[in-house]
Design a protein around this nucleic acid. Sequence first.
DNA 1: TATGAATGAGAGTTCATTCAT
DNA 2: TATGAATGAACTCTCATTCAT
Lengths: 204, 204, 204, 204
Amino acid sequence: MTKDKRSKREVILDAAYNLFIDKGYWDTKIIDIADSAGIGKGTVYEYFESKDAIFLELFKTKVAAGYEMLPEILSRENNCECKMKKYIETEMENTSSFTFSRNFLMDLMMKSDAFRNPALIESIHKLVADKFRIMFHIIEEGVNSGEFRKVDPLLATISVMGGVNFFVSINFMPFAPREFFTKENASAMSGVDFLDLIINGLKP
Amino acid sequence: MTKDKRSKREVILDAAYNLFIDKGYWDTKIIDIADSAGIGKGTVYEYFESKDAIFLELFKTKVAAGYEMLPEILSRENNCECKMKKYIETEMENTSSFTFSRNFLMDLMMKSDAFRNPALIESIHKLVADKFRIMFHIIEEGVNSGEFRKVDPLLATISVMGGVNFFVSINFMPFAPREFFTKENASAMSGVDFLDLIINGLKP
Amino acid sequence: MTKDKRSKREVILDAAYNLFIDKGYWDTKIIDIADSAGIGKGTVYEYFESKDAIFLELFKTKVAAGYEMLPEILSRENNCECKMKKYIETEMENTSSFTFSRNFLMDLMMKSDAFRNPALIESIHKLVADKFRIMFHIIEEGVNSGEFRKVDPLLATISVMGGVNFFVSINFMPFAPREFFTKENASAMSGVDFLDLIINGLKP
Amino acid sequence: MTKDKRSKREVILDAAYNLFIDKGYWDTKIIDIADSAGIGKGTVYEYFESKDAIFLELFKTKVAAGYEMLPEILSRENNCECKMKKYIETEMENTSSFTFSRNFLMDLMMKSDAFRNPALIESIHKLVADKFRIMFHIIEEGVNSGEFRKVDPLLATISVMGGVNFFVSINFMPFAPREFFTKENASAMSGVDFLDLIINGLKP
DNA sequence: TATGAATGAGAGTTCATTCAT
DNA sequence: TATGAATGAACTCTCATTCAT
């Protein structure tokens, strides 16, 4: 009862996190979070200012935190292909290690402007933009150094990021044609093969 | 009063369309649509059964209709690269001709399970799954015929579709880092270059 | 087109009448009446001020009119039993000749104060009160003349009227236990037997 | 604040009950109930799922509950006349003890098909049908045993039930001619006299 | 005269948030 | 600290009535 100060906050966050992932932000009600956390509805407001605030906290700790080390990690790599590999691995780890079932991140990205909390919107936009810039610089560097072909870096960034985002979230998308997404298929898809495609393209 | 060729139904659809794109489905209220269309709240219901019905109509006419001819169009092409080119062109046309000021389709895809109207959900899932299958078969065919490398068709489909979706919608995404998306950059990005990337990859 | 002035009014009334009986007042919408009458919604308001006004007219012509001659008819009878017989016959004729299916009259009686139109409320109250008074005077007269026992006329009036009302409307009541109300049973029930019960009671 | 033994649930039920009786179900709005109960609109929904649910609860506790013991009570009586007496007494108690200021039950009966809630409709129909059957069996038994004349039991049931219903509710009917329903008259009317009329009829 | 498109007040219901305990 | 009863603004949808044509 006394050392539970930090713990209860965590419990709320965990409950909210799972519910957001499971039912989406709008379908998750405060009472659901409270019930799931085993506390009273009012208690939620002892720890968080609002539903938005819970979301923001979750975003920062569960999502954004996974990318904090990214620039440093990438800087340790010698060439752009390796950097891109690390990037993909990080994405895959983040989405899987945080038990990203469903489309949490994508959800955030796409619907971010449905929220009214400016801090939240800004956080989301910032993360996505940061990731975009990182990928852009990898490609730009690769093109400049001759490691990559003379492609338009912006175009390539879009292509690669779109692919990566889709790749890491496809399993959780509600509309993915289920006949393709069997257990075997899912486990067969690897980041290495994925990188290979981006680097080498489809042509034999 | 003079240029009122557009029926009121059209006016409502346009108003709803822009609002849905601008603020999202849930943030758009019936009164917003009515106000935006310059009519009374009740009038909306003279033309549509419900908010869902407006959405469904919009989806069918603005989104799904653009893909109806896709299978036929693709069947006219002789090789898979050309098919993929046509696919990308169709996507680009659809998203631009309908003045997609935001990523309407992506939005739909990601949030589709937030809707309760089964007809609507089904329509959305069907379109996305159809498109996915089309791309899958293009790639599968290419791999089988030797036109493409021996890549995993599913992985490649995900990569390409993710890239394409991102590509056609990036200009309208709320979070795209604005410094990259100047007018000049936007016009510089072409489907041909994009296809080149997918086909040939980044390696020189 | 020219001699249809009265006719169209009738058509509206008939349509409304059947709908009121069939679905009840509140479940009948103006558009239903218009559709059923084969005219436009606005046209209804050319002939009637409001939905209430239609109801009032219907009440006066279809319901109240059936009782206008009642005092005169009863005055022709020589004794109270015969008067009561006539009363019952009139009720039965009114409810059947006007194809009173369902609980139109009862409906009116019970829900009359749900209407806001004072004229309507008054009409309904007046009819019911008139009928009550008529029955009361029949019984009072019978008691005074020695034709009936020395019962409380008010109590007897209530008993008889309740029975009569129930009797004439039971076939149309939604809750009547259906196992009792077969076709044969319905035709077997006669006003004469009913009167016999009231006059002679249950004791052998 | 001091006599708040009554739970808020009770307060809401009472408020709703009086309003339903006073203005009818459809004319009573949730805000009316809330205002009358001295609470906010939303609070009503903390205690009841819907307007229908309030009604159903009211029906079960205030109306149906009064008849639960009826079969047992009647079974203790030795002859049919006594059973009928008990029946009438029960009706009178139910309608008076619950401060039936209007004919709530009759109201329910007549309008029951105006509700859409199946559980509600069924409850109402069941109660009325049950009561009808009880009376029918009393009379049938009386006829078979020779205690009553050889009358049609169905016809007699209708006559008696109609009379009883009217009798117990007449004081609250909006249309009852007020000159008859003075305080003295009301108190003069007894169930015993009423039964006498049914049993012995009007003939001397 | 006849119309039906347009209206908007008003309904039941939801739920994030408040606050007395 | 913890609660949950209470709140009311806001939502979607209904429909009797109006009025320009």
